[in-house]
């Protein structure tokens, strides 16, 4: 005869599936998004361990110039005999740093402006949204070029704190102060131009949240405006915000590559995906791998972030019952 030894307490405490677990379960169904996540994680690891992956120096010229890909040099060498894979791996540190830092800043700025604008409405909203309209009329690439030229020519100097410089230098494996500053300028410029879409997104979400009963109920219970925005609205807006941020990382990486391809941003010998591409222009037909691989990495990274964003959108949407 079977005996039941479960106590009442055990029977009562049904195992609750945690929210993170549900999200992960949903995310897993999205095969491309999982692949994207794996690629992104590999890229981060590749960047983090770039100095241990190959026996070669990043910037040291050797005699083995323009070798095609082989077991020795996985992605070939360039015209100064430097291993392409080593250079691409180091460049990943810069691209990913710029991508994440810019996205962090745009999200922060966009969230603040968007939520204040959506919550208070009226003239505050009008002012903020006209500013957004204004920002969107600016052709961004010429402005980016002009601004980075002004900043990099030393016409206008921002003093970054020593610790910030050292931190970014360490992350990107760049020791030259001027180059670090260059990257920080790029980050600032991209952030100042890029917050508009996030602001609009958050404003829209907050506008609809503002009309919900729980906002009214919180007000009726004496909760202050600041607390309603930070504690009640932003957590509700987090899902679309995470998706938008993820998608934006890929875009930022592409823009940064474009800038450095055009010769703005970090200068050789320090490699970035953009300046590696530029470097390959002269002998593109002779040694196509020099252009192919950096381009492939830009493509893969941006695509992976887009897939990841799509997957997160499905996983974080509570209305989607799968």
């Amino acid at each position: 005869m079977a005996t039941y030894s479960a106590t009442a307490e055990e029977l009562l405490t049904t195992k609750q599936e945690s929210q993170l677990h549900v999200i992960w379960r949903r995310f897993r169904r999205h095969k491309m998004a999982v692949l994207g996540l794996v690629i992104i994680l590999s890229l981060i690891l590749m960047g983090a361990f770039s100095s241990y992956l190959t026996p070669y120096e990043r910037d040291e010229p050797t005699a083995d110039i323009n070798l095609s890909p082989s077991g020795l040099h996985w992605l070939g060498t360039d015209e100064l005999g430097r291993d392409m894979f080593t250079r691409i791996a180091f460049a990943a540190r810069i691209s990913l740093t710029v991508g994440f830092a810019v996205t962090f800043l745009t999200t922060l700025i966009g969230m603040t402006i968007g939520s204040v604008s959506g919550y208070f409405g009226g003239w505050v909203d009008n002012l903020a949204m006209r500013l957004v309209d204004f920002m969107l009329t600016i052709p961004s690439l010429p402005l980016l070029l002009v601004m980075s030229k002004i900043l990099s020519s030393g016409g206008f100097i921002i003093q970054f704190p020593e610790s910030v410089l050292r931190f970014f230098g360490w992350i990107m494996a760049v020791s030259d102060i001027k180059s670090i500053q260059q990257v920080l300028y790029i980050i600032l410029i991209l952030a100042l131009l890029g917050w508009t879409s996030e602001a609009r997104l958050i404003r829209g979400v907050i506008l609809s949240l503002r009309e919900q009963t729980f906002t009214e109920a919180s007000r009726a219970l004496g909760v202050s405006h600041t607390r309603i925005i930070t504690r009640h609205m932003i957590p509700n807006a987090l899902a679309p915000l995470i998706v938008a941020s993820t998608l934006s990382v890929g875009g930022v990486i592409v823009v940064e590559a474009a800038l450095s391809f055009l010769g703005f941003g970090i200068q050789p010998p320090i490699p970035t995906w953009g300046n590696l591409l530029q470097n390959a222009q002269n002998d593109l037909w002779l040694y196509p791998w020099k252009a192919l691989y950096p381009g492939l990495f830009i493509f893969l990274t941006s695509l992976s972030f887009n897939f990841l964003g799509d997957g997160l959108r499905d996983a974080l949407d509570p209305r989607l019952k799968i």
Binding site: T213, A217, A220, G222, S224, N236
Partner: peptide
Amino acid sequence: MVQIRGNKIAMIFQQPISSLNPVF
């Protein structure tokens, strides 16, 4: 006024579930 709301005068609403914040 913020001190009075919820403290001296409280209000409860018609739709109990939507009066609660879904994410907390």
